[in-house]
Design a binder for these strands. Structure first.
Length: 933
RNA sequence: GGGCUCCUAGCUCAGUUGGCUAGAGCGCCGCCCUGAUAAGGCGGAGGUGGCUGGUUCGAGUCCAGCGGGGCCCA
C-alpha cells in the first residue's frame, strides 16, 4: 500500500524547517553585499518622493546595547517599508564621536593619565577610539540586517561636519544670542578642573552642619502681623557648607509652605512649621511658642541681614525648598549651587564667586582671603559665633560628590561659560512644536513643557575631545572677543584640518589684522580652549548632514529615538535649527520606550539584568531580535527577558513553518503558466485570498501608523487561525491527492503563491533575512526581483470580495468551529477515536446545507470538518437525541457515527467506494480515477 | 518633590464614539495524528481589568485620589 505514496504530490522544499538563523543570516547578508542592495534600492527608487529618516547618532564608545539595536531596527523597518511603497528613502547612519563618553573610553583603553597627557595626544587617542567603535558598531548594526549607506556614514568628527557646526555657531552669533556669563559647575580643587556629572563619585564625607540666624531687617507686608522689636527676630537657616555663606545673597522659602514666628525665651525665630520640632530640638530649645503663621509666598521680598558680611539679603521664593531637612529657609549662593544659580538669575541677584581654582578664597572673600574652603569652614563658624548669629554647629556625615580621579570632595564653583540666550526664540519654538506631528501624541505636551521653561543653554565645556568654540580673549584685559571674522577663519581652518587646526594654527592666522579689544583696545589675543557641549554638535546634524548630502534633504520627515531625547536631541536640534536655519528640522517625531527587564525594571550593567544584543544575535539570530522589535509595542516601556525571547522564537517558528508549508506545496508550480484566473478558482481559494487581501489592508495601515506590533500579531494570528487551522488544513487533501495539473490543485497553488509572495513582501521590513530566503525558494516568475527588498508593496485589492467574505464570515467559518466541537464530542464518547473514522450528519435547513456545499464542495466540506464524509441529515428536528447542539445564529445539530467503510490507502478517507475497482482494491473511486488517468 | 507616561489572563498584545457571559496568540494540562513531523490538529484550565471612590440606566473604556514601574528634571 505504501506504493500509492509515490502517486501523491507530497510537499517538497529545500526551505528548511529549522532556520539555523545565525548561519542563514550571514549567507543572506553576503548576498545583499554581492548585489550592493542599498545602492540597488536607491537606484530603483530614484525619482520617487523623498522620505528622509534622519538617524540620531549614538556615541562611538562601546558595543551597541539592546536599546540601540531596537532603535536601528525600527528605523530599518520604516525605511524598508517606505522604499517598498515607492519612496526614495535613503538611510545615512551617523555617529556622535566627541564628548566625554568617548574621551573616557579612550582614557580607559589606553590607560591614560589625563593630567599628564597633552591635549593633542588625548584628542588623537579619542579619535582612534571613536574610529574603532564606529567600525565595531557598524558591523553590529549590519549584522542585525539594517540596510543603509554604511560605506559613507556621517561622523561628527569629520572636518566637514565640524565646520558645519561652526557655521551654525556663526548664525547664533549673528543673531546676537551668544554671551559669556557665570555658571556654577562641579569643580575639583585638587585637579583644578571642571568635572562632568559622569566624573563624580558619591561617597561619605564629614561636613559642619550649622544653624544660623539671618536677622530680620523688614518683613514684607504684614505677614506676621505686628512684629516684635526688629533685631530680636531672625530667620533660622541651616546649611552643611558654611564656606558657601560668604557668597550668600538670599534666603529661599517655599511659596506654599506655612512658616511660623516662634517665640523663645531669648528671641523670635522664623522657620517652616513642618520643621519646627526638629529644628528646636537640634538647637536645644525646649521652651517655645508659635505666635504667628504665614504662607512662604507672603514672605517674598523681606529683607534680612547677612550673618556676618553686613549686607542685606532678600527672601526669595523657590519651589525646590522641602521639609526633608533644615528649617525650610534655604541659604542661597548662586555661585555655589545650580538651583541657587537659577534662583539668582530669576531675581537678578549677583553671583558671588570668592574662590579661585584651587578652592582658596580670593580678595572677594574678605577676611577669609587666603584660606582654602576647608580651612575657612571653622573660621566662618567662629566668626558667626562671635557675632551671635550661630545657633548650633556640629559634625555631619552625608553622601557627597568626590572627584573620580583624586577622590577629594568637589565643590560647586561659578565659572565663566558660554551661553545661548534662547528666550527670544521661545515663541517661535512653541509655534514649530505645534506644526510637528508627535507620535505618540503626548510627546507634544512633553516637549512643550521643556521648551517653555528652558533656561539659557550653556554650550561650553572644559574638555579636550570636541569642537573648539572659536572665540578669543584679550591678552591684556582678558575680555572675550566674539567675532564673525574669526569664526569664518576658524570654519575654513577646521574644514581643512579638523578641530586640531584651531589649536595648531598660529594665532595670527585666526585674528584678522587690525582687530582690537573692545574693552582695552589691546591687540594681542589668545584662543579659547573650551569646546562645545556635544548636544550643540549633534543638535547641528540637521544642518551638517541633511543640508550637505545630495541624497538627503532638509528638513527631515522623521526623527525616531528614545523618549529621553525630548530633552536631548529633539529639543536641542529644534533650537539649533530654529536659530541656525529658521525652522524646525523634522516634520514627525516618533519615540520609543525604554528597554526594561522582565520585572519592568530598568536594565543596567550594575543590576546584571542587561541583555546583550550580540548574545541574542549569536545564540538566536538577528531575526529573533527583529521579530522581538515587532512583538512588543515599542512606544511603551519595553519588557525584555530570556523568556520573552523564547516566546518570540516560538512565534518565529509558527511563521516560518506556515511559510514553509506554502513553499513546499509550490514545488511544481509555475506562476507564469499555471496560475488559475480568478473566475476559475475554487471558492475557498478566493475566500483565502479575500482574507489575506483584507489582512494586507490592515497591515499597511499598521505600518503607516508605526504600529509594527500589530503587524506581527495580526500576521501571526492569520497564520495560526486562517491558514494552519482552517485553510491549509483543508487544502491538504486537494494538494496531495489530486492530479498534479488538475485545475483544482492549480487553483489552490495559485492562492498559496499569491499569499506566500505577499506575506514575504509585507514581512520584509521586519523579517528581512527570512523573507529573502523565502523569496529565493519561491518558484521563479517573469520579472521577479533579485531581492524582495526591490519589490513593490503588494496590492491585493483585486482579490477583495466583499460579498463572498461576508457570506463566509456568516455562514461558513462559524461552521468549522462547530464541526470541531461535534467531532470532539464523538471522541469523548469513543464513537470514533480518530476523526477520519467518522462521518458527520448535519441537521439544518436546506439553505444552510446548500451554502456549505456550494462554498466548499462535499469533499472539502469533509476535509474542513476533519472527517471522511459529511452529509445532510435533514431538518434540525430530525436530529437524533445525542446530536451536538451547534451554537450560532441559525439552528443546527450535528450527529456523527463511526464509518464501517474501508480506509482508502491513498487518500486515507473512509469511502464506500473503496475496493470497488479490482485493479486497485485498496483505493476509493476518486483515487482510482486519479491514478489511472 | 515636579513634568510626561504606563499598569487587561503566566507572557506579549486586541478591545471602534462608555453597552450583551472581556478576546487572540503563545505558554501550561489532556487527547489525536505521523503525508508541514525537533512540525500539525482538537479540547481544557486560567482574568477581583493595579487599588479606592465618583459620574452614568450601564465603565476596562470618563473623572478624582492612592499604589507600583519608567523617562526627564530637581
Amino acid at each position: 500500500m505504501s506504493d500509492y505514496r509515490k502517486t501523491l504530490n507530497l510537499p517538497k522544499t529545500d526551505f528548511s524547517m529549522r532556520a539555523n538563523l545565525p548561519e542563514m543570516e550571514t549567507r543572506i547578508q553576503q548576498f545583499w553585499e554581492e548585489i550592493a542592495l542599498y545602492r540597488e534600492v536607491q537606484a530603483l527608487r530614484k525619482g520617487g518622493t523623498q522620505y528622509i529618516l534622519h538617524d540620531g547618532p549614538p556615541f562611538s564608545n562601546g558595543d551597541i546595547h539592546l536599546g540601540q539595536a531596537l532603535n536601528k531596527v525600527l528605523k530599518d523597518v520604516v525605511v524598508k517599508y517606505k522604499t517598498m511603497r515607492g519612496f526614495d528613502a535613503p538611510f545615512v547612519p551617523g555617529w556622535d564621536n566627541h564628548g566625554l563618553p568617548t574621551e573616557m573610553a579612550a582614557i580607559r583603553t589606553f590607560d591614560i593619565d589625563r593630567h599628564r597627557i597633552h591635549p593633542t595626544e588625548l584628542r588623537e587617542r579619542s579619535a582612534e577610539t571613536a574610529r574603532h567603535y564606529v567600525g565595531v558598531q557598524r558591523d553590529q548594526f549590519r549584522r542585525l540586517g539594517v540596510r543603509g549607506d554604511w560605506d559613507s556614514p556621517y561622523l561628527t568628527m569629520d572636518p566637514e561636519y565640524e565646520a558645519s557646526v561652526l557655521e551654525v555657531f556663526e548664525k547664533f552669533v549673528e543673531h546676537g544670542c551668544v554671551y559669556r556669563g557665570l555658571k556654577p559647575v562641579h569643580w575639583c580643587p585638587e585637579c583644578e578642573t571642571a568635572l562632568a556629572d559622569a566624573e563624580l563619585e558619591y561617597g561619605e564625607a564629614a561636613s559642619l552642619s550649622v544653624y544660623v540666624r539671618f536677622p530680620v531687617v523688614t518683613v514684607s507686608g504684614d505677614a506676621f502681623g505686628t512684629l516684635p522689636a526688629v533685631g530680636a527676630v531672625s530667620f533660622a537657616v541651616w546649611t552643611t557648607t558654611p564656606w558657601t555663606l560668604p557668597a550668600d545673597v538670599a534666603v529661599a522659602v517655599h511659596p506654599d509652605l506655612e512658616y511660623v514666628l516662634v517665640k523663645t525665651p531669648e528671641e523670635h525665630l522664623i522657620m517652616a512649621r513642618g520643621l519646627l520640632g526638629d529644628t528646636m530640638s537640634a538647637i536645644g530649645i525646649g521652651q517655645y511658642e508659635v505666635v504667628a503663621a504665614a504662607e512662604g509666598g507672603g514672605l517674598e521680598g523681606s529683607k534680612l541681614r547677612h550673618p556676618f558680611a553686613g549686607r542685606e539679603v532678600p527672601v526669595v521664593i523657590a519651589d525646590y525648598v522641602t521639609l526633608e531637612q533644615g528649617t525650610g529657609c534655604v541659604h542661597t549662593a548662586p555661585g555655589h549651587g545650580r538651583e541657587d544659580f537659577e534662583t539668582g538669575q530669576r531675581y537678578g541677584l549677583p553671583t558671588l564667586q570668592p574662590l579661585d581654582g584651587r578652592g582658596v578664597f580670593t580678595e572677594e572673600g574678605g577676611k577669609f582671603a587666603g584660606l582654602s574652603h576647608t580651612e575657612a569652614d571653622p573660621k566662618i563658624v567662629d566668626e558667626m559665633a562671635q557675632r551671635g548669629t550661630l545657633m548650633k554647629s556640629e559634625e555631619y556625615r552625608h553622601q557627597y560628590p568626590h572627584c573620580w580621579r583624586c577622590d577629594s570632595p568637589v565643590i560647586f564653583r561659578a565659572t565663566k561659560q558660554w551661553f545661548v540666550d534662547l528666550s527670544k526664540f521661545t515663541a517661535r519654538a512653541l509655534d514649530e512644536v505645534e506644526q510637528v506631528e508627535w507620535v505618540p501624541p503626548w510627546g507634544r505636551l512633553r516637549i512643550r513643557g521643556m521648551v517653555e521653561d528652558r533656561p539659557d543653554w550653556c554650550i561650553s565645556r572644559q574638555r579636550v575631545w570636541g569642537i573648539p568654540i572659536p572665540t578669543l580673549y584679550c591678552e591684556e584685559c582678558g575680555r572675550e572677543l566674539l567675532s564673525l571674522d574669526v569664526i569664518g577663519r576658524a570654519v575654513e581652518a577646521v574644514r581643512k584640518g579638523g578641530s586640531d587646526a584651531w589649536h595648531s594654527t598660529p594665532i595670527e592666522g585666526l585674528v584678522p589684522s587690525g582687530t582690537s579689544c573692545q574693552q582695552c583696545g589691546g591687540s594681542r589675543f589668545r584662543r579659547e580652549r573650551d569646546i562645545f557641549d556635544v548636544w550643540f554638535e549633534s543638535g547641528s546634524s540637521h544642518a551638517a548632514v541633511l543640508k550637505t548630502r545630495p541624497d538627503l534633504r532638509w528638513p527631515a520627515d522623521l526623527y525616531l529615538e528614545g523618549h529621553d531625547q525630548y530633552r536631548g536631541w529633539f529639543q536641542l536640534s529644534l533650537w539649533n535649527a530654529l536659530i541656525g536655519q529658521g525652522g524646525r528640522p523634522y516634520d514627525t517625531v516618533l519615540t520609543t520606550g525604554f528597554v526594561l527587564d522582565a520585572e519592568g525594571r530598568k536594565m543596567s550593567k550594575r543590576l546584571g539584568n542587561a541583555i546583550d544584543p550580540q548574545d541574542v544575535v549569536r545564540d538566536l539570530g538577528a531575526e529573533i531580535l527583529r521579530l522581538w522589535v515587532s512583538y512588543i509595542d515599542f512606544k511603551e516601556d519595553i519588557p525584555t527577558g530570556h523568556d520573552i525571547f523564547d516566546q518570540v522564537v516560538d512565534g518565529y517558528r509558527r511563521l516560518r513553518n506556515t511559510m514553509r508549508f506554502m513553499l513546499s506545496n509550490l514545488f511544481d508550480f509555475d506562476p507564469d503558466r499555471e496560475a488559475v484566473p480568478r473566475t476559475q478558482m475554487r471558492e475557498v481559494d478566493r475566500w483565502a485570498l479575500d482574507r489575506i487581501a483584507r489582512l494586507l489592508e490592515r497591515l499597511t495601515g499598521a505600518y503607516e501608523q508605526f504600529e509594527f506590533h500589530q503587524v506581527y500579531h495580526r500576521v501571526h494570528e492569520f497564520c495560526a487561525v486562517d491558514l494552519s487551522q482552517i485553510y491549509l488544513d483543508l487544502l491538504k487533501d486537494r494538494l496531495y491527492t489530486y492530479p498534479p495539473k488538475s485545475p483544482d490543485r492549480r487553483s489552490a497553488q495559485t492562492a498559496l503563491w499569491v499569499m506566500a509572495t505577499s506575506l514575504a513582501k509585507v514581512l520584509t521590513p521586519i523579517l528581512s533575512h527570512t523573507c529573502e530566503e523565502i523569496w529565493q525558494h519561491l518558484p521563479g516568475w517573469e520579472g521577479q526581483e533579485r531581492s524582495v527588498q526591490l519589490a513593490d508593496w503588494p496590492d491585493l485589492s483585486e482579490w477583495r470580495d466583499e460579498e463572498l467574505g461576508e457570506r463566509w464570515r456568516q455562514g461558513v467559518v462559524p461552521y468549522f468551529e462547530q464541526a470541531d466541537r461535534a467531532v470532539e464530542q464523538l471522541r469523548q464518547r469513543k464513537v470514533a477515536r480518530q476523526p477520519m473514522e467518522a462521518e458527520l450528519a448535519l441537521y439544518c435547513s436546506e439553505e444552510m446545507w446548500q451554502t456549505l456545499v456550494e462554498a466548499l464542495g462535499l469533499d472539502e466540506l469533509a476535509a474542513a470538518s476533519g472527517v471522511s464524509q459529511v452529509r445532510h441529515g435533514g431538518p434540525v428536528e430530525a436530529a437524533p437525541e445525542d446530536a451536538y447542539q451547534a451554537e450560532g445564529n441559525e439552528p443546527m445539530r450535528i450527529a456523527g457515527r463511526r464509518l464501517e467503510d474501508d480506509k482508502c490507502d491513498r487518500c486515507w478517507r473512509r469511502q464506500p467506494s473503496v475496493g470497488t475497482d479490482s485493479r486497485h482494491p485498496g483505493l476509493c473511486a476518486r483515487c482510482v480515477e486519479y491514478v489511472t488517468a
